[in-house]
């Protein structure tokens, strides 16, 4: 497993395209530390002015939901249609609602 240790760790990269927008996941890069990860992300993912801000995070530090839990996690929201404005019927003549 000495081969394993020789790799530069993987970082996930998030870019804010411009002020007012959220950071969006764009891919990953390899780097030995956070400073270098930002530089590598800049060199790879912003060659055409794609961003004004970069986040990097060690891939191994990301906690993700299990796709196997997707039904339990997300389907219960499916029938709560009363959370959406279209659920309510209001006469057309009533304005500003």
């Amino acid at each position: 497993m000495s081969e394993q240790r020789k790799q530069w760790p993987l970082y996930e990269v998030f870019i804010r395209a411009r002020s007012g927008l959220e950071h969006k996941h764009v891919g990953s890069i390899h780097a030995v530390d956070a400073r270098q990860a930002v530089e590598h992300a800049r060199d790879l993912y912003t060659r055409r002015q794609e961003g004004v801000s970069i986040w990097v995070v060690r891939s191994s530090d990301i906690v993700a939901s299990d796709p196997g839990d997707a039904e339990a996690l997300f389907e219960p929201a499916k029938d709560k249609i009363y959370r959406h404005p279209t659920f309510y019927s209001i006469p057309d003549e009533v304005k500003n609602l």
């Binding site: 240790r5 020789k6 530069w8 030995v32 530390d33 270098q36």
Partner: peptide, 12 residues
């Protein structure tokens, strides 16, 4: 070069 970068990061 790659090894040096890793070694430095570990030291840090």
């Amino acid at each position: 070069v790659r090894e040096a970068a890793l070694a430095y990061a570990e030291k840090q």
